[in-house]
Simulated scan of single mutants.
Amino acid sequence: MPVFLTIETTCDETAAALVTDQLEVLASVVASQDKLHQQYGGVVPEIASRAHVERILPVIHETVQRAGISLADIDAVAVAYTPGLAGSLLVGVTAAKTLALALGKPLIGINHLQAHIYACRMAAGRDVFPCVGLVISGGHTCLYRCRDPLDFELLGTTIDDAAGEAFDKVAVMLGLPYPGGPSIQKAAEKGDPHKYAFPRALLDDPNTLDFSFSGLKTAVRYAITGPGRHDPSQVKLSDQEVADLAASFQEAVVDCLVGKSFRALEITGFHRLCVGGGVAANKRLRTRLEEEAARRNVDLVIAPLKLCTDNAVMGAIAVEKWKAGVFDDLYLDAEPGVVRRSSALIHG
C-alpha cells in the first residue's frame, strides 16, 4: 500500500502527515506559531520562516514515529509549494526536495488552496467532486469551480483584504487578541449583529463573484473613531460596544461569503458546496451555510475544525496526482504568487 509523506509550511504552521493511497491517515503533526505572532496582531513573515527552519525536521521525525514506520517505507514526498509566504514555502520545499533526492522517491507539488478543498474530501470519506469550492483563510478568499480533484477554475477572489485578514485587523481595532477570528467570534456572541449597518461590498453585483473587505474594515474603524480621526486604540469602548461591533462586522463578512457561494452554485449548476480554510471554523458562518444549504437542498461539506486551519492531512490531494501520473522534478520551486483566474470568469 503506497504511503505518502505530506509537508505543509505555507504560512505559520509547520505540519507533516503520512497518508496511504486509500486516504487513511497514519499520523499527523502540526506545530502552531500563534504565540510567536500574538504581540504583533498578525503573522510576521521573517519570524514564521525562522520558526519553520527550527521545527520542520522535528515535526517530520515525530510524524514518522507516530506512524510506526521509517522514512524508507514512504513511496512519495509531497509538499505545498504555492501560494504562501516566500520564506515559509522555501523551508518546506527544500525539505521535501532533499528527502525525495536522498530517498530516491518521487516528488509531488501541491497547491495549498486546492488542498483546503480536498480536506472536505478527507472528512467526507466519499467523493465530493464536482463542487463549488470556497477557500477562506487569513491570506485568501476564493471561489472555485472544481470539476474534479485536479481541475480547479477560479471564479472569484478578494480584490483587497482576505476575510481572515480582515478579522485580524478588526480584532486589533477592538483590542481583541490574535488570532482575530476566534476572538471576534467570542465577542460577537454577546453582541447585536444589526447594531451597525456595515457595507456588503460587491454582494449584489451580478457580474462578479469577487469579494472586497477593505471598505468593511474602514467602516468599522470609522464606527469606532468617527470620520477623520486617528488611532482606534485611543478610543475607550465598553464591552457591549465591542460585542456589537464584532457581531455586526462578523455578520457582514458572513453575508458576503454565503451570498457569493450560493450565487456560484447557481452559475455552475453544481449542487455541492465544499468549504475549507481557517475562517470556515467560524460558528456563525457554519450555521448560515447549513441553513441556506438546507433551504436550497444543496449538499454542503465543511471541513471539520481540525482540518480548517493549515495542516498536512489535506496534502493527501497528492494521492490524486499520483494516480494521474503527475509528478515534479527537483526544479520545483516555491511560488508565493497571486491567485490567478482563467479566462472564463462567470460564464462558460
Rank of each mutant, 00 (worst) to 15 (best):
G125P: 14
R126C: 14
R126Y: 11
V128M: 09
V128S: 05
F129E: 10
F129I: 14
P130Q: 04
C131A: 12
V132C: 06
G133M: 02
L134K: 02
L134I: 05
L134N: 00
V135A: 11
I136M: 10
S137I: 10
S137T: 13
G138R: 08
G138S: 12
G138V: 07
G138P: 04
G138A: 13
G139I: 02
G139D: 03
H140W: 08
T141K: 11
L143S: 01
L143M: 06
L143K: 01
Y144K: 11
Y144T: 06
R145K: 15
R145E: 14
C146P: 05
C146Y: 02
C146D: 09
R147F: 03
R147T: 11
D148C: 03
L150P: 11
L150H: 11
L150E: 08
D151P: 09
F152A: 07
E153P: 01
E153Q: 10
L154M: 12
L154K: 05
L154E: 08
L154C: 09
L155M: 15
G156S: 10
T157K: 05
T157P: 00
D161E: 11
A162P: 02
A162Q: 00
A162R: 00
G164M: 03
E165W: 03
A166N: 13
V170T: 11
V170E: 09
A171P: 04
V172W: 08
V172Y: 08
V172G: 05
V172N: 10
M173I: 07
M173Q: 12
L174I: 07
L174P: 02
P177A: 12
P177E: 10
Y178A: 02
Y178P: 03
Y178R: 00
P179G: 00
G180T: 03
P182L: 08
P182D: 11
Q185I: 00
K186H: 10
A187T: 03
A187D: 09
A187S: 10
A188L: 04
A188K: 02
E189M: 11
E189L: 13
E189Y: 08
K190Y: 12
K190W: 13
D192Q: 01
D192Y: 01
D192T: 00
K195F: 05
Y196K: 12
A197S: 14
A197I: 14
F198E: 00
P199Q: 05
P199I: 03
A201Q: 04
A201D: 07
A201S: 15
L203A: 06
L203P: 03
D204N: 13
D204Y: 09
D205P: 02
D205E: 14
P206Q: 13
N207Q: 12
N207F: 12
T208N: 04
D210F: 07
F211D: 00
F211S: 00
S212K: 00
S214D: 08
S214L: 04
L216G: 05
K217Y: 01
K217V: 00
T218N: 09
T218L: 01
A219F: 02
V220W: 02
R221H: 14
A223P: 09
A223R: 07
I224V: 13
I224K: 05
T225Y: 06
T225A: 13
G226Q: 03
G226E: 09
P227G: 02
P227R: 14
G228D: 05
G228Y: 10
R229W: 11
H230K: 15
D231N: 15
D231Q: 13
S233D: 10
S233P: 02
S233L: 14
V235T: 08
K236W: 08
K236L: 12
L237Q: 13
L237K: 13
S238P: 07
D239C: 04
D239W: 09
